[in-house]
Write a protein that binds this DNA or RNA. Sequence first.
DNA 1: AAAGCGGGGCC
DNA 2: GGCCCAGCTTT
Length: 345
Amino acid sequence: MSFSQKIIFWYSANKRSLPWRNTKDPYKIWLSEIMLQQTRVSQGMPYYERFVEQFPTVHDLAKASEEEVLKLWQGLGYYSRARNLHTTSKLVSEKYNGNFPNTYKELLSLKGVGDYTASAIASFCFNEAQPVVDGNVYRVLSRYFGIDLPINSTEGITYFKALSLKVMDANQIADYNQGIMEFGALLCAPKNPYCLHCPLSDSCVALQKGKINVFPVKLKKAKVKERYFNYLVVLDKFNHIEIRQRRGKGIWQNLFEFPLLETEKEYSLEEVKKTMGAILELKEASEIYQFNEKTIVHRLSHQHLHTKFWIVKSEEKRKNGVSFDKLKEYPVPVLIAEFINAFKF
DNA sequence: AAAGCGGGGCC
DNA sequence: GGCCCAGCTTT
């Protein structure tokens, strides 16, 4: 059996039952693929179910507001995916009459759809012979063929796409693509792969050389940035809380948060009192204290956010104030959602 | 070519 | 603590 035949055979016996495997609806395939970008199946699954429930068709998604979409996306991360999802849904709904493009090339033009996602939709829905190259595929191919080109270098990306085109089964592209990803996720795992039960072990270069843990080769990434956040939770005389929407570049674009004082280091109560005027028009605060005893370190992939929540009580009526119940309806980062859950009047 | 973008789970 | 996950876009 060829490489692709072994993959397809293994897949037929070992595939998981996943909700988006019961359909060829391009809308649902597209939705699932966007959600699963850099995201584990187990994490994306409940979001997929909720989206399909709330937005059964691309038209339903297109009619929603961005805030609704972001709220349903809350907690899944990489929020540009949600914004692009919404943009593309409106395009498909309004300009394409609800029909997704049916070729790899046209799919690539959609916002949020890159090489992987275009290949996935084109192959799963329309049987177009485009191989998917995701993290699983990089791992399987680099090990099996012993390729030490960094998978996140331009040269590596080109090489693995070309190699994929060579080894794929164009006549069973959907099963081949699903199969190699499933194989990478379940058997040829990043750590402790099940080489003893591997149908490809006879001819796996990495295994034969005892270099399973060397592949895939990856260029190392930039180091994590430390940031210091002071959230000012302003409670006015109506017990309304001031919120703002993050605009511009950076993390959490278009999500809501409290007025934020970002500093170069951790700030004390005195330092916050002294400088909060820069971001807050506040005549006088009757009371201010730190809510969390210890600094919260919210860890993102690329940033550590050292965070203090300061409760600021004011006798004024504040603008942009919302009640505690309303607050829960806004899309917010997990860091803020956890504060809201912990906060009691 | 490199940087930026979330959050969670596993070792 | 580091690594990785059905990657894409912007600089």
